[in-house]
Write a protein that binds this DNA or RNA. Sequence first.
DNA 1: GCCAAATCAAATGTCAGACGTTTAATTGTC
DNA 2: GACAATTAAACGTCTGACATTTGATTTGGC
Lengths: 244, 244
Amino acid sequence: MQIDPSNPPDLSAQIAAAIRDAIVSGTLPVDERLPSEAELAEKFAVSRPTVREALKRLAAQALIRTQRGATGGAFVNRQTYAEAHAQQITTATLLLSMNEVSFVTACEARYALERACAPLAAQRRTDDQIALMLAEISRQQDPALTDEAFCASDIAFHRALVDAAHNPVLSYQLAGAVEAMQPLMNMITYPARSRARIVALHRAIAEALEVHDATTCDAELAALASYTEELAETVFAARQVQTP
Amino acid sequence: MQIDPSNPPDLSAQIAAAIRDAIVSGTLPVDERLPSEAELAEKFAVSRPTVREALKRLAAQALIRTQRGATGGAFVNRQTYAEAHAQQITTATLLLSMNEVSFVTACEARYALERACAPLAAQRRTDDQIALMLAEISRQQDPALTDEAFCASDIAFHRALVDAAHNPVLSYQLAGAVEAMQPLMNMITYPARSRARIVALHRAIAEALEVHDATTCDAELAALASYTEELAETVFAARQVQTP
DNA sequence: GCCAAATCAAATGTCAGACGTTTAATTGTC
DNA sequence: GACAATTAAACGTCTGACATTTGATTTGGC
């Protein structure tokens, strides 16, 4: 764990990288306490503010956490699904919003991923998840539901579908992707008239999962995907006429 | 963009969150220059080191970049696929290594995702990608290839498969997942005797893509998945006997 | 001898001021 | 007008200090 002090303009980045490598390689196990800031400063032959900047970089990636007080310090953080998930959502959201990713590209990716876990979900779904999905479908049928609430319910429905696969790695990957794409999706599903069709497809998906029918589930997901793309085309066409 | 100075222990985190929100919400567009560190310090009524810690947090997430010199400063970074990809790999790698994710879980997730883009890949693959896959297969047949090199080639092969779908969002998601799982996979594919079978499956996959045969491609991927799991069982069983 | 309160010490969080370095714009000269 | 020297703005780093938190230690009382 050494750095090159002769190549300065970024000592804090070098130190952060050195510590990160130690964590990733397992040299520093979970919950291990790092040396104090003063000790690290001495070890790397830099000042304490520089060490602190390095630690803040690691904290931003949830690699470490800090505690104040006598037995305080920086500790190696256990990476939780929840944290990784949250991180992935911000990253993916920015990625999509800053790179003019077309709706069809995002939509295609989303449904491809979702269909990937449909077979597993059909096989392993629990009654709880079916109940959750049906409850969301009921909410979505309420005409008084605002567009925002409808979209939130849509997320919850698909989240339940993904979780039904009972694979935490898959859930983490997919839930992040689905949520990140939601801002794009929202633009499409706002026209209220499309709700009935979407709800019908949701119902078909839930029922297919209930009877462990992977084939039907996949077909209905495909139908939902193509319907969503179709809607998108309509919306974009209307928008182009509106703002020439 | 204000903070609460009365609730200190983490002014830098509050400032980082405030700036991050401004970026995510689009208030600060890409390539916009943030105020100088001194100006930010004055604006938030904190010292310059505190502002710097906040900026380092954002830099760690690739949300900003900094330049020195007269027209220097912090600029809002465009989130690139490459950066998001690199970030996802470190996060996912740590997530897997720190949470005792079972091999079957990781393997299942990986192949589920990979099979998700197989239909698209079969439809859109270019000759370049087929050539790349065949080249990797040739390398994998060399008995002199080290285990590390074989695994690297394995990654390249699957990366080409994913890229053949020609969907950058899908590539970003999947390539991250595949690479993050590689350390786990490596433990399995090390026994050299399994290489021939793996190479044969790779060849079958490449040939199916070449003739745009999505069904066969999916079947061969499924076969590769089950063979990998089978190998894993063997390895783990042997290990248990070895270290009782 | 035991329990509670006061004290202490270690560590992070924050601040102020300073100096060095990089970089682009400005100025001055030929 | 082109090129070189100067200047100024900004980041990168250092030093030293004080505040705050928090667990451990010591002290005091009973």
